[in-house]
Design a protein around this nucleic acid. Sequence first.
DNA 1: TCGGTAATGAAAATCATTATCAATAACTAT
DNA 2: ATAGTTATTGATAATGATTTTCATTACCGA
Lengths: 138, 138
Amino acid sequence: MSADTWLAQLHENGYRITAARRAVVEMVAKSTHALTPLEVYDLGRKKYRALGLVTVYRTLEKLEELHLIQRVHQPMGCQAFISMGQGHQHLLLCQNCGQAEYFEGDDLEALTKSISKKTGYQINEHWLQLFGLCANCR
Amino acid sequence: MSADTWLAQLHENGYRITAARRAVVEMVAKSTHALTPLEVYDLGRKKYRALGLVTVYRTLEKLEELHLIQRVHQPMGCQAFISMGQGHQHLLLCQNCGQAEYFEGDDLEALTKSISKKTGYQINEHWLQLFGLCANCR
DNA sequence: TCGGTAATGAAAATCATTATCAATAACTAT
DNA sequence: ATAGTTATTGATAATGATTTTCATTACCGA
């Protein structure tokens, strides 16, 4: 997913393309790490000096709305965002460098069926996230 | 896990047993929902009028330290805590009423092996959480 | 090019959490 | 049981992150 695709998505949904949004989108789209609003702000200002932190918050909000990014939950905090994966994918995070990667292929069908029977719950969704050390850090 | 067990754990670890801690521990230990600090505060004040919010934060911190409670991550926020499950267990949450339940029996061995081979990551930990509707709410 | 209006950034407001501190009360040693 | 040490308390203030407000700017369709 390139920054241009995201900008096109914003435009299609009636949002205007501005220098501020370009800066935010570009930085988040190309990052392999989850970024906090403040990190996006710092990075974004390298592209567009006048960028305001408030605009970062507002732009991230819109990107999340359009499912272009997602919030990443980690032991140390849940304020960071990362580019959304394609289809049904889950995150694999490096505990050392923060590098993030998507994976797919989890089959929890059997598990959810069994849990559903045991508990009486109708299971609608699951969150799965792996933590470890990336090839470089291990 | 009863409130008394938790108080005993606190005592064993050199912490004093106070009326404030009794109130917090009792409320969190018996709750079937994840509770935010503010919710614990409101509930706790029914037991112990003079309870302060700051003490709630401090007590929750200690309970987390001793692995008696854990932070619960949800789409709407990650400030809530719930009694810890026994051994390797995961949470199942009702999207309607917030009821929480533990389950076990997830076997991700095959998945993590395959992901590890594919990505080069050394996988150390996983987070799994199910969302749905409990028997009452479905 | 122009004009309506969405978007902006600065500043202020809000909300959750943490630090400070003097007063209190739990526990240990007597 | 008592006294003394010191962890704990609650009120208040400080902090930090996020949201709201608002006058100004600039995007983009006509």
